[in-house]
Amino acid sequence: MLFFKRQLPLAIAFFFGMVGFFAQYIPHHSFEALYNELISWVRLLYAFALILGTYSLLRLHSKRIERKAPGFGYSLVLWAGFIATFAAGMYNDGRGFLAGQSDSGMLMWIYDYVFKPAGATMFSVLAFFIASAAYRTFRARTTAAGMLLASAIIVMIGRIPIGDMISEHLPILASWLMEVPNAAVKRGIFLGVALGVVATSLRIIFGIERAYLGGD
């Protein structure tokens, strides 16, 4: 049993990891073909996993409706939304679900007039949340926080026309902050992240890191 729960997954991780690693360095067409084959397996895996996800979501909400848990009305909305969208997708503007995706009809209507505006609304809520977060948390508690606060204010004002009204040096200072210290920090974090990614990948390939299998 341990073979299926430990050795085999580790061997698979090692094999696929190595193929992925060497695919970066071996341009040969036969290796390329092998790599493309593996990539298409991954895509296939995802298609099945999506069914799993949908099942998980729908089961959770049916249980809520059964138990009449607080807020179960939302679960009803979810089911209704799922059924309507699924039906529209299957109907496919009269072409049936075997034909290619139609670019008109009910599904597209849902996409254009429900999905897109809802997404846009959520995106614009960000402006309000930024204001609230800035008010509540941006405090000069320490010297470092104070410096951060000062730079934030300079950049915020320096990038709009009012900055020029206050002083012609303000926009220049704002640009400097963005181009020099900000870019330097970004690069530093990026290098660390890149190195971390490589090291973690190697740990997984060599089987040193195996917590993702559900245990040490």
Binding site: Q24, P27, A199, L202
Partner: peptide
């Protein structure tokens, strides 16, 4: 003809080997 090693990525490969070697050594 197809090639079995991309020599343009030799530098990248060397760095990857050094890092892998270091990890294995310390472990």
């Amino acid at each position: 003809r197809g090639n079995w090693f991309d020599s343009g990525k030799l530098n990248n490969f060397a760095i990857a080997l050094v890092l892998a070697g270091l990890i294995i050594f310390y472990v």
